[in-house]
Design a protein around this nucleic acid. Sequence first.
DNA 1: TGTATTTTAGTAAACGATTACCAAAAGTAG
DNA 2: CTACTTTTGGTAATCGTTTACTAAAATACA
Lengths: 137, 137
Amino acid sequence: MAKIINLTEAASIAFHSMIIIAQQGHKGQVNVNFLAEKTSSSKFHISKVMQKLVKDGFLGSHRGPAGGFFLAKEPEKITLLNIYESIEGKLEVTKCPLNRPACPFKVCLFDGVTVKMTRDFRDFIRNHSLAHYLEKK
Amino acid sequence: MAKIINLTEAASIAFHSMIIIAQQGHKGQVNVNFLAEKTSSSKFHISKVMQKLVKDGFLGSHRGPAGGFFLAKEPEKITLLNIYESIEGKLEVTKCPLNRPACPFKVCLFDGVTVKMTRDFRDFIRNHSLAHYLEKK
DNA sequence: TGTATTTTAGTAAACGATTACCAAAAGTAG
DNA sequence: CTACTTTTGGTAATCGTTTACTAAAATACA
């Protein structure tokens, strides 16, 4: 089935896992096995995603028994945009949905719809921090 | 650079080429070389895309010198949605942006934004036929 | 008839995302 | 110290989608 929205498994793991970790409270640590169970995703893939979030300073980690991951900042300070860009790279709103320099038409055939879609998405994830998901456990 | 909109090269070729063909008037034929020049895309890839559109009854074709492609229906009768689905398959608006059956959360973390984005796109391409692009040559 | 043009159809290559695996490092607990 | 748990980081394999290429078929025209 065709999909117009390009949300990768990796980004999905990052979003869901970060919310789950945030919901464990300030010092609760969550390990990969727990996340794998909760999100029904591969342990291996989760590991890789978590590593990026640690490197970018959004998560801390402890090895060994009872180790795991925990938020490295206040939930208010971590937006979904932070998480997305940590995994996927910078999300820019460009005129051409294909990022092409040349276009055969004077006016883009999509007229602005794709720009608006990207902007909608970007605004949403920029305006939602992890704190937003704490009450609705 | 990260992209949230999944518009393939193939779909882009289909959209642009169909509009260019429509703009050539009722019986004008357009060949692959012309399309390749206009759209700055690969001849080979354009060929493949055109083949699908012919099979699905949106284009006719003639081989040989002065051959090429032409609309098989009135421009009013061909929507961008027709073209998109001919290339990509059926575009459905699903709740989960990942089309997953199970979700760790009661309420989707995107709340409806991704659904809305897909609906916006689908509405736009459904409401725009090739006729829409004829005046603004 | 013969040559050039053009689509067609099948196959091959390239690419990116995902998944899998493993050895090493770090920490915990007995 | 020893055994166990867990993250880390690197590499390799797999998979599906997209893109590229080529030979064959069809057509036109001289």
